[in-house]
Design a protein around this nucleic acid. Structure first.
Length: 294
DNA sequence: GGAATCATGTGAT
DNA sequence: ATCACATGATTCC
């Protein structure tokens, strides 16, 4: 299925130009990653994509608000290390400090989160109705899942992989009742990828469905401001289990509300992007995209 | 710089 | 019980 067809399929969302640009961005990131030894230039890449460098320039500025050069820099290990920062400020202080510099910098104050009780978690979604729909996004086709308490799931489908994506999500809460309803999910989809539309007055409402440990990890992810990143061991320290960094990695990997709960801002201690449930390319794309917002 | 190896907590089976 | 991990530190080359 082509991207244009996917966008046609989506109902009730505004069709953003960013949505159709992702395919180009994805290919560029993959070429850079696969051929990192040969260091392909922008001209090389444009040629291989059958585009002119000028077209590519336009695509990047439209998609990320960044020139190709700045975008490529944003995707390097050096940049990731900078995101980690040097100083050892506790996360909350850091975010409050950065929050003073303007709207859109803060993450957690503009997202209200509510956790399911342990009992509800153990019931594996029994008694819960989850409505879902597919919508275009800057990072490919997204699957949005909501309950009446808020956004419960956000996932990404590869082209033609909608069913696999749905299964991946539905397995997490196997006893829930699933109803396709993209009219209901459209209002979430319209805001999720526009963090500048989140506000303290009208926060994005999310509901975390997971184990106690997972919820502690996900809450701590919500404290990472735009333009910053933390390591898995930072999170382990923060939740008071300093030797559990690997368990943190596992919990981060099971974050059901990707992007909104910014699990892409968790990196290895070296700055390496050690993994991403929806593909490392997408993690790079998110960090590059955010580099244009900060 | 790797590659190999170890200690490690959580959640699924 | 056992196993797979989106880790990280250490110890070899």
């Amino acid at each position: 299925m082509t991207l244009a067809e996917q966008i046609d399929l989506s109902r009730g969302t505004d069709i953003t130009p960013e949505g159709s640009d992702y395919e180009t961005v994805r290919q560029v990131i993959e070429m850079l990653t696969l051929d990192y030894q040969s260091q392909p230039s922008l001209d090389d890449i444009a040629e291989r994509l059958g585009q002119s460098p000028t077209q590519l320039q336009k695509t990047f500025t439209r998609w990320a608000g960044l020139s190709p050069k700045a975008f490529l820099q944003a995707v390097t290990l050096d940049h990731a290390k900078r995101l980690l920062g040097r100083e050892e400020l506790p996360l909350l202080e850091t975010s409050l400090e950065l929050g003073l510099s303007g709207p859109g910098r803060l993450h957690d104050l503009f997202v209200t989160h509510e956790a399911m009780s342990p009992g509800e978690w153990k019931a594996r979604g029994a008694g819960l109705t989850i409505r879902y729909g597919y919508h275009p996004s800057p990072f490919g086709l997204s699957l949005v899942m909501i309950t009446d308490r808020g956004l419960a799931g956000l996932a990404f489908a590869e082209t033609g992989g909608e069913a696999a994506c749905f299964d991946d999500m539905a397995r997490r809460w196997p006893n829930a009742k699933y109803v396709e309803d993209s009219e209901a999910t459209a209002s979430y989809a319209a805001r999720v990828f526009h963090p500048e539309r989140w506000s303290a007055e009208e926060p994005l409402r999310v509901v975390l469905i997971g184990s106690d440990f997972q919820i502690r990890v996900w809450q701590s992810l919500l404290g990472i401001p735009l333009g910053r990143a933390v390591t898995y061991s930072d999170i382990a320290q923060k939740i008071g289990q300093p030797t559990a960094s690997r368990a943190v990695g596992a919990a981060v990997g099971r974050n059901p509300i990707s992007f909104v709960v910014p699990c892409h801002r968790a990196l290895g201690k070296s700055g390496a992007l050690t993994g991403y449930h929806w593909g490392l390319t997408r993690k790079r794309a998110m960090l590059g995209w955010e580099a244009g917002k900060g």
